[in-house]
Design a protein around this nucleic acid. Structure first.
Length: 572
RNA sequence: GGCGCGGUAGCUCAGUUGGUUAGAGCGAACGACUCAUAAUCGUUAGGUCGGGGGUUCAAGUCCCCCCCACGCCA
């Protein structure tokens, strides 16, 4: 039995994520986690909210709440939504947890001991009205280059010129609008990533099986210009993890916190401790997943993320781990995704464009979204959501091919023999051929799932569903019944077993429908079909079943039009 | 401007290290069936593989140039 550690990129606390975010990390990670559990592997699947940083502070202020309260509320909102989408995290933690505080401070201490932390004095803009230092992007003013009046302190959106906040004419706070700004000296810690460049480079070079999208982004950051740059890991903010050197205070760093990019990935580890702490279990139980010196050496660690997160996961977080000099588990495989577009443009959180997780669940069950999003996952390039395609694909795949198969065979059997698996009759060459075809396709499905080829897995699963309809169509039990009821019984018996088989195979994609199918077949046997022929005899003659409600109600044109219209603009 | 990923049937996409008449699903047309969610199954039509050069006995698949879309960075 293999042991597999899976993490999904952790969503930022601020606001509800859209379907593009969902399909870019959490959903495929869940697919992989569910599949591996079904295969009998030991899985630890972790996710969390990323809670620190200025955007969270501003959103809390806008909501008129203390930032800690705001984050606690938004964590619950996101937790409920991930439950709604049936994301099967073992732990959905918080980067603001005490566990992450301690671990982040521990890593900083180790890095300092290793000589990889440098104190740098720099000048930063302080807003007297806001009572705080302002990150570059929260300073606005007139661009000295083109005269654009709403240029940001890091860059002018109009002429794209790279700016320093002090370049701006009539600079003002983007938060309060105040022009009462002054430049102050402040001291920050930098992680000397440049010293780890060759080590990181060797490590990346050894990853021959990683997607090109992943390694090319990493190599670019390692090699472009002067190579990997040192990065600041602290900020002058209130909301965050206080800067400490392990358990010790850090002289000169009082009142400062770690920068969000530094503490967020450490939460991958901390969430495992949150997981065992919540259950009152000892540290050894999570450390066996993360410490290669105490049990994690046989763990395979897979990360899922959108392409925008690749630099942090290939370089920054590994730099933290390598630099610590401690035997933490490094990632073995990174599965990265492109973007899902919405009806001719991008999904946008800031503009409220597209469909968001809460809205999606308001209009349809999660299985519909899971199936469509996963079967169209943006793996090789960006892909696009349109309501027409969504309606067409979901109706055809889920309602007509899978749902209708379950419906036709259960209703036919009930009409002829009652709600019980019929006995009698012999299997012939048609059944042998079906089992051969199924075996080949199930093996292909397994290999695609193991390779995290999401779209190919979906296509293979669909082909497996089609085999059932083809079989029924060719052996036509409704005709055979008239002359040879025993033979028809054998066909029905096999087909009812197919329903159970489909439930097991489909569960990673459509978990709710899988439960409905198993319940209808009146069984708890969800064992994986290592041998298809054996699996198709799980429900013996005489076993009672029920006819389930329609598994997937079709999306009507009127609904589609209403939704397309409702989600055509910005979120209100 | 640099870099990256793409540009294959109306649509969404597969096409391994170059090798027989370029594939799948959807959509379309026609046919079969009637158990079923007006579902299913079968057959057929449809592409000069973005454009132009080149290497090769042979290129969607390698090399060069160009065009288009998207993204990242500066």
């Amino acid at each position: 039995m293999a042991r597999i550690l899976i993490t999904s990129a952790i969503p930022y606390i601020n606001g509800i994520k859209h379907l593009g975010n969902l399909v870019g990390s959490q959903l495929p990670a869940d697919l992989y986690a569910r599949y591996n559990r079904a295969r009998g592997n030991e899985v630890l699947f972790l996710c969390a909210t990323d809670e620190h940083g200025t955007p969270a502070e501003l959103a809390a202020a806008k909501a008129g709440k203390p930032v800690a309260d705001y984050c606690a509320e938004m964590w619950q909102v996101q937790k409920d939504l991930s439950d709604g989408f049936r994301l099967s995290f073992d732990m959905f933690g918080r980067s603001s947890s005490p566990q992450n505080h301690a671990l982040t401070q521990h890593f900083a201490g180790r890095l300092a001991d290793a000589g990889l932390i440098e104190e740098v004095s720099e000048k930063q803009v302080f807003s007297n009205a806001d009572g705080r230092f302002l990150p570059d992007r929260y300073i606005e003013g007139t661009c000295p280059n083109c005269g654009y009046e709403r240029a940001r302190g890091d860059q002018c959106e109009n002429c794209t010129k790279q700016l320093d906040p002090t370049d701006l004419i009539d600079a003002r706070s983007a938060i309060s609008g105040s022009t009462d700004l002054e430049v102050r000296d402040t001291k920050h810690l930098y992680l000397k990533q440049s010293q780890l460049r060759s080590k990181l480079s060797d490590w990346i070079a050894s990853k021959h099986d990683w997607p090109i999208l992943t390694t090319s982004i990493a190599k670019k950051w390692l090699n472009d210009g002067d190579g990997l740059q040192d990065r600041g890991i602290t900020r002058d903010l209130d909301w965050g993890i206080p800067v400490k050197r392990g358990d010790e205070d850090w002289p000169g760093m009082e009142g400062k916190v770690f920068y969000v990019w530094f503490d967020a990935p450490i939460e991958y580890i901390a969430s495992a401790k949150e997981w065992t702490d919540a259950a009152g279990r000892p540290d050894a139980d999570w450390q066996r997943w993360w410490r290669t010196d105490i049990g994690a050496d046989d763990v395979r660690y897979v990360q899922f993320m959108g392409k925008d997160n690749v630099p942090f996961h290939t370089l920054s977080f590994p730099a933290t781990i390598m630099g610590s000099g401690e035997p933490w588990k490094l990632v073995d495989y990174i599965k990265s995704f492109n973007y899902l577009n919405y009806d001719g443009g991008q999904f946008s959180t800031s503009q409220g464009r597209g469909v968001f997780m809460d809205q999606a669940l308001e209009i349809l069950p999660s299985d519909y979204w899971r199936w469509w999003l996963l079967s169209h996952a943006p793996e090789s390039s960006d892909s696009e959501f349109t309501w027409e395609a969504f309606q067409q694909d979901v109706n055809k795949d889920l309602a007509d091919v899978l749902g209708n198969f379950v419906s036709r065979i259960t209703k036919f059997s009930r009409a002829k023999w009652g709600e019980v698996v019929p006995e009698g009759g012999e299997f012939g060459p048609e059944e042998a051929a079906l089992i051969d075809d199924l075996t080949a396709r199930v093996r292909a499905y397994e290999s695609h799932m193991e390779a995290m080829e999401v779209r190919k897995s979906a296509a293979e699963l669909r082909a497996i569903w089609v085999l059932g309809n083809e079989y029924l169509q060719s052996v036509a039990p409704w005709t055979v019944f008239k002359t040879n009821p025993h033979r028809a019984a054998a066909i029905a018996r096999l087909s009812l077993n197919l329903v159970r088989l489909y439930a097991v195979l489909s569960a990673p994609f459509v978990p709710d429908a899988a439960v409905t199918m198993l319940d209808a077949m009146n069984t708890k046997d969800d064992s994986w079909p290592d041998d298809v022929k054996t699996a198709l005899s799980a429900l013996p003659a005489g076993h009672a079943f029920t006819v389930p409600d329609v598994l997937f109600v079709k999306i009507q044109d009127e609904d589609r039009d209403i939704w397309a219209d409702r989600f055509s603009g910005e979120r209100s």
